[in-house]
Design a binder for these strands. Sequence first.
DNA 1: ATCGTTGAATTGTGATCACAATGCCTGTAG
DNA 2: CTACAGGCATTGTGATCACAATTCAACGAT
Lengths: 238, 238
Amino acid sequence: MDKKSPISIPLTEREESVTVTQWVYQTLRRAVMHGQILPGRALTIRELAKVLDVSPMPIREAIRQLSAENALEIQGNRRVMVPKMTAMKFNELCEARIALEPYAAARAMPYLNAAKIAELKALNTLGDQAMAQGNFEEISSLNQDFHRLLYSANPHQVTQPLIESLWLQLGPFMRLATSSLEEYYVVDRHDEAMQAIEKHDAIALQLAIKSDIREGIAFVSTPEALHNFIEQSNTSAR
Amino acid sequence: MDKKSPISIPLTEREESVTVTQWVYQTLRRAVMHGQILPGRALTIRELAKVLDVSPMPIREAIRQLSAENALEIQGNRRVMVPKMTAMKFNELCEARIALEPYAAARAMPYLNAAKIAELKALNTLGDQAMAQGNFEEISSLNQDFHRLLYSANPHQVTQPLIESLWLQLGPFMRLATSSLEEYYVVDRHDEAMQAIEKHDAIALQLAIKSDIREGIAFVSTPEALHNFIEQSNTSAR
DNA sequence: ATCGTTGAATTGTGATCACAATGCCTGTAG
DNA sequence: CTACAGGCATTGTGATCACAATTCAACGAT
């Protein structure tokens, strides 16, 4: 019956008081971010409804929201899929992160009180532990939490949704690319960022974030490596 | 029957081949951007369905998409509204524009061939005409078209949706603020931008865009003026 | 063997309905 | 006159259904 490659999405228990649509949205978002839905794989509402065991309605709403965040792509011919990556697009996404995130960090710095700094340090420590254990899933997740917590310290911040959109577009490809590496060196400029924060040095903080982002994608730094990863991540969706 | 202030949304003919949901989305988006739905006004799906004369279903989808773009805000208590503006948020939105748009312009410059430049010049000329006639609606619209055309010249660009989201959040407030001014001086740094483009001077282009944005919001530059406009735009939604 | 065509199955779209939760209004007690 | 409680109307949510458009595969012609 299924001609297409099967899709398996990790399901979590749905808490009461969470609407079905919200649960579907979170589930699909996580699946996309973790690269569990292959780029280019055609998705249908009814198929997802069966996999998640809900009616088509919440799926429709979640898909529309995810496509508004550029996590999914609605092609003209009523086909929905995770967008495929290209070398140029990858480059643009990384540069956009570098344009936005250091700025967001600097804007958040005035709001970083002792409590927030303690939280950041705690996340940082957890990250170090995960790195010692070589738990890449955890490292990546904690790294995102660190950045999110930092930027969101600014209560008037408006860039977080934009940044999340960029992460969502880079996520699937990063997962697919790193999963093919037996081992990759994880850079951690968070200590550098923490020092800049404690000195109230906005410029140093921006530099630390910028370095963190740049070095986090260094494993695909050469055009050939990038090309290979893209080739691989796209053909695997065949 | 209607205790709330009436909402009137300009309707356009729906072309065939455009889905109802798309038409509703465009209609609501335009209404929000033009400040025709007052910030803070509670919206209900069924009310909008009656106003637009469609079933509640397309409204639901359009609302979800617009709230994903931060054009609408879904409060916990199942209430949807255009977000209210605050002085801090306005500041953040403007600074985010300044962080993103000059970058997007510089990234687009390599792709600006003679044809694109001609298009930009044409838009610029139309803008000058509108300015001579004092047609502020047209000026504002053409100004957006100019920026959009410039950034979108980059075929791999990923920032346009993010920028559109920022415009969408600033739009309603800018309309309400300028509508209360009898006359406001419209700055136009587009000529400066065109010269930078023709010289292939990325730095100059970034500066021109930056100035264009900063001076476009200069009429609320003083904290007191900003405060007054916000006061006014929010109380009018009472 | 390859390409174009046709028909059946599948798909997105939009309408309608049922239900539980929320908000609103009224009536009553203090 | 104020505050609270009760009941009623309204709302978002999610399921189901009908239909037109599209896809896909089998079939036939060249």
